[in-house]
Structures are given as C-alpha cells and as structure tokens.
Design a binder for these strands. Structure first.
Length: 508
RNA sequence: GCGGGCAUAGUUUAGUGGUAAAACCUCUGCCUUCCAAGCAGAUGUCGACAGUUCGAUUCUGUCUGCCCGCACCA
C-alpha cells in the first residue's frame, strides 16, 4: 500500500511522526512548548535540505553559462520594500462578520448609502447596501438598494449609488452597513490590517527611523544588486541571477506542517531578457525546465500539474503566472511559481533610488531595462513534496515495511555499510575499512548493531538507497560483498571498485 | 482571526484525586552466515502556568501547541 491511498489526514500525520521519530523535521523550540509556524531540521533533515539546495544550485548555476549566483543580506534598506510595494501591498485589510464568523477582504467588499430624493427635493439616507466583488458588483448593489427601498416603503426616487470599498467607510457607517453574509447591519468589524513583514530595528535606537524588515522574498536582492552585477560580471542578455536564502512572512495561519511556515527558505532566479524578446516562449521554457527538474530529483510526474492564474487575478505588473502544483496529502497546492514580471521591479528601484537600471545590449546597440521571468520555489515545499512522494509502506515476508524512496542524489545517506556479524573481528575490520574509504567521498552510515534484517529496515526508513554487507566470502574468498537495493530488495555480489563505479554513475 | 476536537516515554496508546503502564523504537550483553528472530538487562513520560485540595497527571481557569472546518495565502 502506498501512502497515497491512506486517508489524507492519517497519511500526513504518519509522515510527520516519521519525520520526528527519525530526526528529520520537528517543531522549533519544543522544550518551551513549540512556536507556531517555525520548524527545525534535524541531522537527516539538514542533509536532505542541503542536497536539494545543492542540486538546484548545481543545475541552475554551475551547469549553465547564463546564470550567476548571489547572496544578498536578509535585512536591506527599508526603502527597498517601499519600492517593491511590500510595505503597502503586503497589508491585507480584513473585515469580519461577527455573526456569521465569515471574513472578507476589505478591498473586495463594497458598500453604498441608499439615498432617496423626496418630492420636495430633500435627500434622506434610508440605509446601506453591501455586496462582495462579483462580475457586476454595481448591478448587485443597485438591486439590493431597490429592494431596500421597497421593503421600507420609502417614497421618492433613488439617487444614483456612490459605490466604495469598505476601507473608505467611516467608523459610524460600519455599524449601519449590512453583512453580505446575513444581510443585517451591525455585525461587521472595522477593517483590520495585517502586515506580513516582520519588523525589527537596526542600531541601538528603537524609533520610527530605525525600523527595518526581515525580507519576505529573496527576489528584491537580485533587483537591487542588478546594476552592480551587470557592471562587474560581463553578463549579457539574456542572463539570470539566482539566490538561495531564508525569507520571513508573518503568516496569519501557518498550516500543513512545513508547507506554510513563517520562516522559510527560497530558491529564486530572476532571468533578465530584452524587452522585445519573446517573453512568452521564455516563460514556457522555464516552466518546462522547472517541471523536468522536479522529476529529475524523484518527484513523480503524475503528482504534478500546472495552474495558470486567470488574467483578472494577476498582479498588475505580471503578464502571466503559472504555478507548478503538487498533490500533497492535504490537497493540490502550489509548489513552484513561474511569473513573467515585466520590468516593474527594476523600474520601481530606478524610480525610488534615482539610479538607472539599464543594461547596454550589444545586439541592438541600445540601453534597455530588461524584463524578467521569475521561477520562485520554497526549499521547504520541495522537501515536503519529496518526503510525501517518497513515503511508502509495503510488505516484506509478512512484515510491514516503511520506506522512503528518495532519489539517490538527495538521499541523506548514500550507502550503509554492515558487517554481517559484529562479534567476528575480521568482518568488522573489513566493513570499517570500506566505510572509511566511502566516507571520503560520500555521506555513508556504518551499523553493526542488531540482526541484519533490522539494519536494512532502519536504512529503508531513512531512505538510504543501498546497503552493503561484508560476510565471510568477502574476507576469505574473493573480496566481493553483497549490495542490497532499497526499492527492489535485490542483492548482488560486487567488488569495491564496482561499488565506486556504480556510485559515480548514479550520483555523478 | 472564528468555531469544533485533542495534548500521558522517541512513536502508538492504556490508566488513576494518593506523583503511572504496555507495545514498538533506542542502548548494552549473549546468541545469530542476509530482511524488524530469541534471551537477559537499561534509559526515558503526564505540554506550561495558576486555582481548588492535606495531596492534582486526574477537577477548574488561562496560555501554548497540534488536528479539522471557515476565512486568508505573497
């Protein structure tokens, strides 16, 4: 039975338990009761995460000619976030309906006073109407206003409605605006805003002038440092800047294990292209690249899908955004966002800093502000996807077996080395020699405790792809030992040279 | 942020107004020639803080965390 067939909740809890039990991932600050939205990666989790990071960096930066790396600081000048729109835009004012317990985004909740003009020309406000944003919000409100007039039996003619979203409402008006959920006034709260950026202070003085933010994304580093990189590295369009690093968002409700946490690690790449280049084709190429990459580290293609953001939901500076979705146990959710971001960010920084954000393009002999294609992904989300797709339970000779089928490239340990028996010194010596030889090049594990079958199962549970066992034939006959495959359980006899050659081939 | 449920060992669970147990895991020894064997032993637990009480893991409150639903999600 694969983990995918178990009930969603159980499957996720099982994976969370395993992660804890084997020291892969656990809650931050557990001895103090834990802290919501923060996680620690234990010895195995740290290896797994590092391997994912390294694989991405190797493929994205080292193995390409057109992408360079960057590590920008987590705390940047606060004006960076004014230019990027995060100081304003990361604030989502929300309105709650106390009665129905529903919550609405304030900028999507519209209202209008209903004003009737009497025969004598006097204007009377008979009440308020409200409606959520829809295909035709104005028509909805109009219909409700007419309804209200009819119900109250008001005489006179309706004045044309003045529609505004609820952020524009006066506090005394909030009390009179009906909740779109119940149709009755008096249950709405004033709009309350949540800024998702963590604030801190730089320097000893703690006042408004010392406020700084922990970055909510790594991308701005690439834009802010764009000019310096262009001036110092001889890059030519099209080219990319890649960065891996921590970002922080003060999420209202962190959920689903490490899927949505308050401190997370991003791998982002900004690919700069000529403004006249075929951005759509470039976007498509990156979509494909990212999907192929996920498959290359062992994520099954059938758990992946694309989600194209509808035009009306795009941020105003985005021409197109497509998310690569993954079928997590708790549902199909975003894994990797690939956005065509236009030249918005560079132009914003040019405007706010007063420094030109241009590059001289040899091909067209012109100075241009490039456009950007941005594949942005969370290391933690990839790790979760990897963990969920690697988890299997099967049966071996009537016993349940838990196995993590990690791709060898990202498995924490590549090989485990066992002496068949630990009370036979020649076996132990030979096993330890092999262990030391392997360790120079790979992360490997040595284990001599317990029955051999138990040792195999322990490695299965942490996803070690191969186990080798030194037996009497190894030391008395031909030097060969058995290598046992995690997924097929097959055993073969091979020599040390063959083992190294195989690892070179599978991991190189 | 709202509503509901939950919190006992690393994991899964039992249990009690008189400071707690099992299985698995882990560790040690014996044994063991390839898939969680056996025997002997060992480590380790009532989420936190108050209150009631002679005494609270148990009752009450607050907090924290986890799960589910709603809402939100760059």
């Amino acid at each position: 039975m694969s983990a995918q067939s178990a009930p969603a909740n159980d499957r996720m809890e099982t994976i969370v338990s395993l992660a804890k039990r084997r020291g892969i991932i656990f809650q931050s600050s557990e001895i103090y009761g834990g802290l919501n939205g923060f996680f620690d990666y234990g010895p195995l989790g740290a290896e797994l995460k590092r391997n994912i990071r390294n694989a991405w960096w190797e493929d994205m930066v080292h193995r390409r000619d057109d992408i360079v790396g960057l590590e920008s600081s987590i705390i940047m000048h606060p004006r960076v976030w004014e230019a990027s729109g995060h100081v304003e835009g990361f604030t989502d004012p929300m309105v709650d309906c106390r009665e129905s317990k529903q919550r609405f985004r304030a900028d999507q909740l519209f209202f209008a006073p209903v004003v009737v003009v009497g025969e004598d020309g006097a204007e009377t406000t008979i009440g308020y109407v409200s409606a959520l944003e829809s295909e035709d919000t104005a028509a909805d409100l109009q219909a409700r206003a007419e309804d209200l007039k009819r119900k109250l039996g008001a005489r006179g003619t309706l004045k044309p409605l003045v529609v505004a979203d609820i952020t524009a409402a006066h506090p005394e008006e909030i009390e009179k605006i009906p909740s779109p959920a119940t149709g009755k006034p008096g249950s709405l709260t004033p709009p309350r805003s949540f800024n998702l950026m963590f604030e801190t202070h730089v320097g000893a003085l703690r006042d408004a002038s010392s406020v700084a933010y922990l970055r909510p994304e790594t991308a701005q580093g690439m834009f802010v440092d764009f000019k310096t990189i262009v001036d110092t590295t001889r890059v030519k369009l099209p080219f990319g800047i890649a960065q891996i690093g921590k970002s922080f968002r003060n999420e209202i409700t962190p959920r689903n294990f490490i899927f949505c946490s308050r401190e997370f690690e991003q791998m982002e790449m900004e690919y700069f292209i000529h403004p006249d280049a075929d951005w759509f084709a470039c976007h498509e190429e990156w979509l494909q690249w990212c999907r192929d990459w996920l498959i290359s580290i062992g994520i099954p293609a059938d758990l992946l899908s694309f989600d194209e953001h509808p035009k009306e939901k795009l941020a105003f500076y985005s021409r197109r955004t497509v998310d690569i979705m993954f079928r997590y146990p708790f549902g199909v959710q975003e894994l990797w966002g690939i956005a065509a971001r236009s030249d918005y960010d560079l132009k914003q920084h040019a405007k706010h800093s007063g420094k030109p954000m241009e590059i001289f393009d040899e091909a067209t002999k012109s100075k241009v502000v490039p456009h950007v294609i941005e594949p942005a992904v969370g290391v933690d989300r990839i790790l979760l996807a990897v963990l969920c797709s690697a988890y299997y339970e099967d049966e071996v000779e009537g016993e349940k077996r838990t196995v993590l089928r990690f791709h060898p490239r990202i498995a924490p340990y590549k090989v485990a080395v066992f002496p068949l028996l630990k009370n036979k010194p020649p076996l132990v010596e030979r096993a330890q020699a092999l262990y030391r030889a392997l360790k120079r090049k790979y992360n490997v594990f040595y284990d001599e405790s317990g029955a051999i079958g138990r040792r195999y199962r322990r490695q299965d549970e942490i996803g070690t792809p191969w186990c080798v066992t030194i037996d009497f034939d190894t030391v008395e006959k031909d030097g060969t030992f058995t290598i046992r495959d995690r997924d097929t359980l097959e055993q073969q006899r091979i020599t040390e040279d063959q083992l190294f050659a195989m690892l070179e081939e599978k991991l190189g």
